[in-house]
């Protein structure tokens, strides 16, 4: 079995894995980091989103071997010790989660959205969330949480120029 080495949440890790091992399997089963979830088998739901070298990826659609040498951040590595990442805090403050299952992937995707679009409008946020499915919240509070972190949320929606 090939050996893979990477940095996960700042820690160097390596293991011998079967070539078909997915990154999400490696994270959950080898590293026991079970905050990253699996919700589908077609790369649609986004519950498995992690950051690979600073970019959001669906870890169900990346082989562990493809992450060789990469730096991975999972939901467990997002907070700075006891200080929540602003996106984590915003999800709690705005009730942007209910059952919590899609939440780790949703938060990791949300951080990535603001990395690419620091001041997104509502249409941008909703469009960028197309790779993440939530069955509980109806998305209202997720959109609100993300825009609150960006400072672009207003109670009255700003209608796009039409």
């Amino acid at each position: 079995m090939p050996k893979v080495s990477m940095t996960v949440n700042g820690r160097a890790v390596s293991a011998d894995v079967e070539p078909r091992t997915l990154l999400v399997q490696y994270i959950r089963e080898n590293l026991k980091l079970t905050g990253t979830h699996v919700g589908c088998d077609t790369s649609q739901c986004g519950a498995c989103v992690v950051h690979l070298d600073g970019r959001a990826v669906k870890s169900c659609t990346v082989l562990a071997q493809q992450a060789e040498g990469a730096s991975i951040t999972t939901i467990e590595g997002l907070a700075n010790d006891d200080t929540l990442h602003p996106m984590q805090a915003a999800f709690k403050e705005n009730h942007a989660l209910q059952c919590g299952y899609c939440t780790p992937g949703m938060i990791m995707a949300a951080v990535d959205i603001l990395n690419r679009f620091p001041k997104p409008d509502e249409e941008r946020v909703r469009h960028e969330l197309e790779g993440n499915i939530c069955r509980c919240t109806g998305y209202h509070n997720i959109v609100k949480a993300i825009m609150s972190v960006a400072g672009t949320w207003t109670e009255e929606p700003v209608r796009a120029a039409e």
Binding site: L33, T34, G35, T36, H37, V38, T74, I75, E76, L78, A79, L84, Q88, F91, K92, L97, G100, Y101, T103, P104, I107
Partner: peptide, 13 residues
């Protein structure tokens, strides 16, 4: 929420 937003929930799998 504190456990859910930090990846510390304990779900079935």
């Amino acid at each position: 929420d504190t456990r859910f937003i930090t990846g510390k929930g304990s779900y079935q799998d």
